[in-house]
């Protein structure tokens, strides 16, 4: 009974370590995860860490996934006691710096799932970014978890 309940957890942890980290020369994506949600949910949130290891500013322009119709970057913040959310069109990451997308702050809004999104699944993320006026593409995976890495 005990080993049965632990196995999926071990598997999820291993998958998240293996797939949660992707790097591509100047831009790294670490600890990517999507919060699982109840059946019939139309909107999911995702979190990750972008690491710009280059000497130039990088701008994230667009994100796509085969699992969702649309992905946007949003920012949740509290202004004068009011909880607000704003869409971020171009997310800038300064040279040699890290940017965390985490609960209650910058996050991914993953909308209209094309299939069932369940705990332990992997969600493909295709990241379009601009580095020295060139558009580049980075592919990564986010693991679906109830509660993430923090």
């Amino acid at each position: 009974m005990r080993s049965k309940s632990i196995k999926p957890l071990v598997l999820i942890t291993l998958l998240s370590i293996f797939f949660g980290q992707k790097s591509f020369a100047e831009l790294e994506v670490n600890n990517a995860w999507v919060r699982s949600a109840p059946p019939n949910s139309k909107v999911f949130s995702g979190y990750l860490r972008f690491k710009n290891v280059s000497a130039n500013e990088i701008t994230i322009n667009k994100m796509k996934s085969n699992a969702f119709d649309q992905i946007e970057i949003h920012s949740s913040f509290i202004e004068d006691g009011i909880s607000t959310m704003r869409k971020i069109d171009n997310l800038r990451i300064s040279e040699n710096s890290e940017m965390k997308l985490e609960p209650g702050g910058y996050h991914l809004m993953l909308m209209s799932p094309k299939k069932d999104i369940k705990e332990g699944n992997l969600v493909e993320l295709i990241i379009y970014y601009e580095d020295e006026d060139r558009i580049k593409i980075l592919r990564s995976d986010a693991v679906v978890l109830r509660n993430g890495y923090e």
Binding site: R35, G104, M109
Partner: peptide, 13 residues
Amino acid sequence: YTNCPDVCPTTIY
């Protein structure tokens, strides 16, 4: 509201 994917689940958690 349940269509809020970031702040609401975080507060519930």
